[in-house]
Design a protein around this nucleic acid. Sequence first.
DNA 1: ATGTTTGCAAATAGTTTGCATCCAG
DNA 2: CTGGATGCAAACTATTTGCAAACAT
Lengths: 139, 139
Amino acid sequence: MLLANFYNICEMNKIKITPQRVEIFKELIKNNDHPSVTKIYQRLKKKYPNISFDTVNRTLQKFVELGLARVVEDFEDFRRYDGVIENHHHFHCIKCHRIIDVFDEQLKEIEIPEGLKNTFNILEAKIIFTGICDKCKSD
Amino acid sequence: MLLANFYNICEMNKIKITPQRVEIFKELIKNNDHPSVTKIYQRLKKKYPNISFDTVNRTLQKFVELGLARVVEDFEDFRRYDGVIENHHHFHCIKCHRIIDVFDEQLKEIEIPEGLKNTFNILEAKIIFTGICDKCKSD
DNA sequence: ATGTTTGCAAATAGTTTGCATCCAG
DNA sequence: CTGGATGCAAACTATTTGCAAACAT
């Protein structure tokens, strides 16, 4: 996502291009380190001491609405527990938030790319499917 | 994970087998619907009105320590944003919490099991690798 | 001009902590 | 008995909301 796209998308959606929004967007894409709201806020506060945490927070949410950004691993915002210890995959329904275990022979051994295997110690590779579940489909 | 294992693991780790722990464990594995603390608390409160939210919360954490349970998609507990819109995978470092984008041709098309494809509307299939990153490996 | 956006402050939700009491071993 | 476990209440953290003032168009 480039800065030029940012302007286009803002105009298309008729949302105002404010200095804060421009700076927040630039900070978001600058080094792609998946920053939190607080991170972006802290970085911007150095250059623009007047910016508020709240604006950063709301702006990032707006960006997600507009398709300019995504929330990292965006599931529910509270902890859930799993009694199944063995490695397995999950399906998340985006409507009812059901989580369904996925056990599949084919997916059991995920091919870990050489680049990754050599650089990091990979402890787990888990597929997370998101979509709409059977119950919610029929609504 | 079975109830018998629960007793064994508690004994092995010399933690007390209290009625609360037994009930919380049974509730966790009963229908494997990935319950939140609040869910388990609410369900148990019907039968055991004296149980406290706090005990449920701490017990579940204890279960994770002992390897009796897992936290679902257990990443950091605050929201992080991604400026990359295109589908891609992530590597999470469990030590420094860096998140690194994984783009890989081989992984681009994840084989979605027929069973899943037929039952749900799958919108995304994303692999989340967890492990220890290059920087943290050398510490 | 005017309706959106901003900054502030207070509220909220989920989780955690401190501590006195209780109970499993 | 005794140290770990429980229940309660208060604290904490991340996020959200309401509102008046400021600004982009």
